[in-house]
Design a protein around this nucleic acid. Structure first.
Lengths: 353, 353
DNA sequence: CTACCAGGGACTAAATTCGTCCCATAAGGA
DNA sequence: TCCTTATGGGACGAATTTAGTCCCTGGTAG
C-alpha cells in the first residue's frame, strides 16, 4: 500500500471513528506529560493540562489498567511498556498535532484569528474537500445565532459545506442569502442553490437573487434600478455573517468562460485570487471586479463574521492574497493548502530580510 | 516505516484506545451489511446483526451525520462516500476480522469450545505476550465465581496474566493454588508466586506448595506421606478452575535443566509439548511425567474450566498436541501461534485424504 | 516530628445511552 | 386502486455511565 492509499485509508478511518483520533491524541498527550514531568500527582497534572481532577482520573485509571503507567506514593509515572508505547505512537501523534501547529502558523502569518486545518489535500484526496465542508459546517452551526443573516457564495467547496451541514435544532431560524448574483455555473454550485440548501438544513429560509451572468454596464444599471432587485440587495447588505469560497484567479476565469480581453487583463495584472466576484493580485489589490450585483468588498467591514473556506495546494496563493485583501475572521483550509501557504510565506519573509 | 514497526505501532494504538478499534470494526460491519442488503430498514438490519433497534439507530444516525449513508423511505443505503469509505477500510477491517476467523478455525480444528486470538506473535512483538495476559486475565475475571478454587501453573506467560489482572471487586474471595510444585525456575515465574499475585489482585488468598524440584522416587513417596503436603494436595485437587501454560517440550526441558537421559528419552519419543509437568508427543500421548506433586492429568476431567494460555509461532505444535492430550475449554493464543496451528492442521488433514 | 501532597474511596448530580412505543408515510403487491 | 407492510423519525422514561466534590490514610521531605 503506497502513501497516498494509506492517507486515504486513514481519512476513511477517521471518518468512521472521528473520536478515535481525538482520544488517541489526548491520551498520548497525557503520556507525554507524565513522561516529561516524572512522577507527578493527579491534581498537579490536571492543573497542568487544563482539565479537572476527575476527568483526568478516569484516563489515568484506564492507562494504569492497560499497564502503561504505574502509581506510586510520589505520583504516577510511565511503566516500561508505557515508554515503549509512547515511542511507538509518538510519530503518529506528532502528525495529529502537526495540524494544530499548522493552523497556528497560518493564523499568525496571515493574521486570521481563527484557522482550522483539516487533514488531506483537496487537490488529491477525495475526502479532503468533504472534511473541509464538515468542519466548516460544524463551526458555522455553532457560530450562528437566530438573529444572523447568512450570506453565501457559490462553488464546489461551498456546496460541500451545504451538503455536510447537519440538520439543526428548529430553534435557529436564520435567513440565508446569496452573496452575489448567478455566476454561470452549474445549478448545484450556484450561490442561490447553496443558500437554499443551507437554509433548509438550518431550519431557516432563503432569499433568491436571480441575475443573469455577464452583464453589460447599461443592463446592470437597469437591474439596480429595479425595485425587486433593490429589495433583495437591501437584504443581502444586511447580512451579518458571510461564508465564502476563495478561488484561484485563472481557474475561476476559465470556469466562468471569461473573454480574451478579460483573461489578458487578469494576466497582465498578475491576478491570483478570486472572491465575491473580485480578482486580486498577490498583494491583495483588486485588479478586476466582475460586473455583477450583491455583496461588495466595502460591505465586509460591517459584517460580524467573515468566514472563508478553501483547500488544496493550488489555492494556497489565492488564500494568502485574499487574506491581504480584506478581513477574514475564520479560515477553514486543509493540510495541502496550509503547507504551501506556510512555505511561500516563509520564503517571502526570508527575501525581505 | 517497515511492516514490523507498523504492526508495533498499531499494537500501541490499540493499547491506547482499544474501545475505538472495536467501534471501527463494528461500524465497518454495519456498512458492509447495508452495502450487501441494499436499502434495508433499521429493524430488519438490527435483527440481521443481532443487536437491538435502538443501539443500531445511534450508529446509523452517526453514519448518516457523517454522510456515509442516506436514508430513504425504502431504508438506509450507502452514499457514494460510504462506498468509497467501505472500500478504503475494507482491507483494514478484514485484518481485524481475520482474528475472529482464526479463532473459529482453531476452535473447530482442535475442538476447543472457546478460543481467543490476540494480535501479534509472542515470539516477535514485545506487546503480544502482554496482550495474551490481558485477554486471559479479562476472561478469567468474568468466568470466576466466589466459590471457585483456581489452580495456576508457572512460566512467563502465566506471569503476564498475573501482571495484567486488574484488581477485582472485593466481593470475589477466591482461593488460588499452584497446580504443581516448584519447577526450578526463577521465583517470579514460579507457580507459587503467580498464585500469590493472582490471589492478591483478585482479593482472595493463596496456598503455597513448596516442594523441591527434581525429586527422587523415594523422596517423592516420603513427601506424599507428609501430612502438611497431604493437606495442600487435597486443596489443590479440589480446584474447580485451572489456568495453565503450554510449553514446547525441548525448550521446557532445557529451561528445567533436564539430564542427558531425560533429554534423550524426550527426543526418542518425539515429545513436542509440556503441560502440568507432563510431556506429550504430537498425538497427545504422555511420553514422560516429571516426578513432582500437584494436579494430575486424571484430575482434569473433574474441573469446571480448563483454561490454557500460550502464544508464539514456536508453540503452535505444542498447543495442538496438548489439545489432543486432554480437554481444554478455553484457549487464549495469538496470531502467530494460530496461524501456524491452522497451517499445520490443514496440511495434516490433506495428508490423510 | 510535622506539614504536605500523593492515590484511592465514596457519594451525588448531571449527562448520556438505551429500551420501548407510537406515528405518518412511502413502497409494493393484489 | 387500495391495502398491507415496513420504513424512518419522534418521544419519553429507565438505566447506566460520567463527572464534580470531598475526605481519608499514608508515605516523604524538610
Amino acid at each position: 500500500m503506497d502513501t497516498k492509499d494509506e492517507a486515504a485509508m486513514w481519512s476513511a478511518v477517521r471518518r468512521l471513528v472521528p473520536e478515535l483520533s481525538e482520544e488517541l491524541r489526548w491520551r498520548t498527550r497525557i503520556l507525554e506529560r507524565i513522561y516529561a514531568l516524572g512522577p507527578i500527582g493527579r491534581r498537579a497534572l490536571a492543573l497542568e493540562m487544563g482539565t479537572t481532577e476527575r476527568i483526568l482520573r478516569a484516563n489515568l485509571d484506564f492507562l494504569r489498567e492497560q499497564g502503561l503507567l504505574v502509581a506510586s506514593a510520589a505520583g504516577v509515572s510511565l511503566s516500561e511498556d508505557g515508554e515503549r508505547a509512547l515511542e511507538m505512537v509518538g510519530e503518529f501523534a506528532s502528525k495529529l498535532d502537526g495540524r494544530a501547529e499548522q493552523a497556528e502558523t497560518v493564523s499568525r502569518l496571515l493574521r486570521i484569528p481563527t484557522v482550522i486545518v483539516v487533514e488531506g489535500d483537496s487537490d488529491e484526496v477525495g475526502f479532503a474537500k468533504d472534511n473541509l465542508g464538515y468542519r466548516a459546517a460544524e463551526f458555522l452551526k455553532r457560530a450562528l445565532t437566530p438573529l444572523d443573516i447568512l450570506a453565501v457564495t457559490g462553488g464546489t467547496t461551498m456546496a460541500s459545506v451545504a451538503r455536510r451541514m447537519s440538520v439543526a435544532a428548529p430553534a435557529v431560524t436564520i435567513k440565508v442569502v446569496p452573496a452575489r448574483g448567478g455566476l454561470g455555473e452549474t445549478v448545484e454550485i450556484q450561490a442561490n442553490s447553496i443558500a437554499s440548501k443551507l437554509a433548509e438544513k438550518l431550519g431557516g429560509h432563503s432569499v433568491m437573487l436571480h441575475v443573469p451572468d455577464r452583464l453589460g454596464e447599461e443592463a446592470l444599471d437597469q437591474l439596480l434600478a429595479d425595485p425587486y432587485v433593490e429589495q433583495r440587495l437591501q437584504e443581502i447588505r444586511q447580512a451579518t455573517v458571510v461564508l465564502h469560497g476563495i478561488g484561484s484567479a485563472l481557474e475561476m476565469a476559465e470556469r466562468r468562460q471569461a473573454s480574451q480581453s478579460e483573461l489578458k487583463l487578469l494576466e497582465e495584472n498578475c491576478a491570483v485570487a478570486e472572491a465575491f466576484g473580485y480578482y486580486f493580485n498577490a498583494s491583495g489589490d483588486v485588479v478586476y471586479a466582475m460586473p455583477t450585483v450583491g455583496l461588495r468588498l466595502t460591505d465586509l467591514p460591517q459584517l460580524r463574521i467573515v468566514m472563508a473556506v478553501a483547500g488544496g495546494g493550488r489555492k494556497a496563493d489565492a488564500v494568502a492574497a485574499a487574506a491581504k485583501a480584506y478581513r477574514i475572521d475564520v479560515l477553514v483550509t486543509d493540510e495541502g493548502a496550509a503547507k504551501r501557504m506556510i512555505e511561500k510565506e516563509m520564503d517571502k519573509r526570508r527575501e525581505i530580510e
